[in-house]
Computed example of a mutant assay.
Amino acid sequence: MVYEVHILHTGYSRTVEGGTEANCTCSIIKGKYNLIVDTMTPWDQEIILKGLKDVGLSCEDIDYVISTHGHSDHTGNNNLFLKATHIVGFCISYKNHYYDEPFSKNEPFILDEELKVIPTPGHTLSDVSVIVNTLKGTIAVTGDLFEREEDLIDDNIWRNAGSESPDNQIKHRNMILTLADYIVPGHGPMFSVPK
């Protein structure tokens, strides 16, 4: 079955007086397995419910909830998906059962030959990214490994957003750039990987 990637919400991040204003990009991967990646803040429930309806899904149709890392703007509505397996960074769980995870051994969690979750630490030490093959090409949903397309030119953008391991972040950013045709970053629109 062919996978499709739908952006339910395009993230943003901007400096404001007294701090930062930000929300993450929220994506749906639709196919043999249905995934939601990064569920925004707790105040964004209506955006998610409407976005699911627009792509012909409901909360009950989601098989996996992926939070690329555990920051609050990426986990805020995970509780809407009670029939799904949850992957939050390196943690894989369903209800109160926690599964052995492959990420700390630098191995992927493979759903099928077209869809996998891979470890990409850097922004946090337990970041993951989703790699999905579509008719459009290979799409990497990376969370804050990439803040937005502009950080390809200005690495101060991702560095200033916080990085628990800049060396790992550089390594995993380069790896994604060789794997993907398109990147869905944590706080900006999807972009094509420059050749």
Rank of each mutant, 00 (worst) to 15 (best):
N78W: 12
N78G: 12
L80A: 05
F81G: 03
F81P: 04
L82V: 12
K83A: 02
A84N: 00
H86G: 02
G89M: 03
F90N: 15
C91P: 03
C91D: 14
I92H: 04
I92G: 06
I92A: 02
Y94G: 07
N96C: 09
N96Y: 14
Y99P: 04
Y99Q: 03
E101Q: 15
S104K: 15
S104W: 11
N106A: 11
E107P: 09
E107W: 11
P108N: 11
L111G: 06
L111W: 00
L111P: 01
D112A: 12
E113W: 06
E113F: 08
E114M: 15
L115W: 02
L115E: 01
V117L: 09
I118G: 09
P119M: 03
T120D: 10
T120I: 10
P121L: 11
G122H: 08
T124H: 06
L125E: 14
L125W: 12
S126A: 10
S126N: 15
S126R: 14
D127R: 07
D127F: 05
S129R: 04
V132P: 00
V132M: 09
N133R: 15
T134L: 09
L135C: 04
K136S: 06
K136V: 07
G137W: 03
T138G: 01
T138H: 01
I139H: 07
I139G: 01
A140K: 02
V141K: 00
V141A: 03
T142N: 08
G143F: 04
G143A: 05
D144C: 06
L145P: 05
L145H: 08
F146L: 05
F146K: 10
E147C: 15
R148S: 12
L152Y: 13
D154L: 05
D155H: 14
N156K: 15
I157D: 13
W158G: 11
W158N: 11
W158D: 13
R159D: 09
R159C: 02
N160R: 11
